Amino acid sequence: MALVGRPNVGKSTLLNALLGQKISIATRKPQTTRHRILGIHQRDDAQIVYVDTPGLHEGGKTAMNRYMNDAAGSALSDVDVVVFLIEAGRWTEADEQVLRRLQAIDTPVIAVINKADRLRDKNQLLPEIELMSKRFGFAAVVPVSALKSDNLQALEGSLIEQLPAGPPLFPRDQVTDRDERFMATELVREQLTLMLGDELPYASTVEIEAFEQEGQLRRIAVIVWVERVGQRRIVIGEGGEQAKRIGAAARRQMEHLFGGRVYLKLWVKVREGWSDDARMLKSLGYHAGQ
């Protein structure tokens, strides 16, 4: 089932909450998610394969924007159920644009009203559920708080009702389709997004230069690509302090996720226009439909 919605509505936070562990990076900044990521929830009665997608958005003209929209849009044709996330108390034109895309598919759609904990008056939920039900023929409308893990069992119950019967698609111990190399790049990119200004994270990406494992020790070298020399100076910081903070925070996240020690090296390099260079995007792992 695909998790879709406008940017920054909480798709990655919901995926992590449903799985009970972090596999998709999440920040308060829109368009943090750039790839389709599978999260596999192993239950006694079902195996649920969630597809976290980049936020569907209009107006982006770079190759990166087109890639993210293609990654999100292609997921709609590959799943049994679509989960459409919106934010409680806030319906926007961007939500309307996503809904128009969903009206063109035959797949069952469940509406999820996220961030319900932000409503001071819980009596506001009922009219909001009724309003959502009038907008489209949803299979169900479920309010949740991904951040606080509220009402997730009810959501999964509604989802399982829509799933076809069949054998598991993945081994019982598998949680995601992504390997440690991918997760390492994402965890560095998460810290770039958290620690830097509003614009710079969108002008940066991360590439693995080396990944070696010796027992429980992983030696990882990454390159942070930016588009201008001035951006490189910002990422490095005075005396290299900013890059050290980014690397240290990413290393701690990796050690928690991988369950072992990590030795991380981080370099910052400039490649003008990388985000609008289709060939470089492909070399960095931004493949169509992924």
Score class of each variant (00 low, 15 high):
A210W: 03
T32K: 06
T33I: 03
V98Q: 08
K61Y: 00
L169R: 07
V81M: 06
D117M: 09
G157A: 15
R43N: 01
Q21Y: 01
P7Q: 09
D106K: 11
L152A: 02
V79M: 01
D52S: 02
Y263Q: 15
D150G: 01
G89E: 10
I223A: 14
A63H: 06
P168A: 15
Y67W: 07
G157F: 02
R245H: 12
R135L: 15
Y263T: 03
V222G: 11
A184N: 08
H41L: 15
W267I: 00
G137E: 12
F138M: 01
V141P: 06
V144P: 02
F84C: 03
G237T: 14
Q162D: 11
S145A: 10
R43E: 13
F182G: 05
M254C: 08
R218T: 00
V235W: 07
A184M: 03
G273D: 15
L18Y: 09
M132F: 08
H287A: 10
G20L: 00
R218D: 02
A165D: 14
D95M: 10
R261W: 00
W91P: 10
A221M: 09
H41Q: 13
A184R: 08
R66F: 05
L126P: 09
T193I: 09
L163I: 12
A140T: 11
R279I: 08
A243H: 04
T92G: 08
Q216V: 13
S158L: 08
L85Y: 08
E209R: 02
P108M: 05
M1I: 09
D45E: 14
K11I: 06
G259C: 10
A72T: 04
E128F: 00
Q162L: 12
A139H: 04
I110A: 03
L125I: 14
I236G: 01
V98W: 06
T13L: 10
G137L: 06
I129Y: 09
E161I: 06
V141A: 04
E58L: 13
K29H: 09
G137P: 04
L192E: 12
S275E: 01
V79W: 01
D117W: 01
I129P: 03
F84E: 06
L155R: 10
D117T: 09
D80L: 04
V9S: 02
A2F: 05
P168W: 01
V51G: 02
H287M: 04
L217P: 02
I37R: 05
W274V: 12
L169P: 04
L281T: 04
E180A: 14
G10C: 07
G60Y: 05
L125Q: 11
Y263R: 14
F84P: 02
D80P: 05
D198Y: 00
V235P: 09
A288I: 03
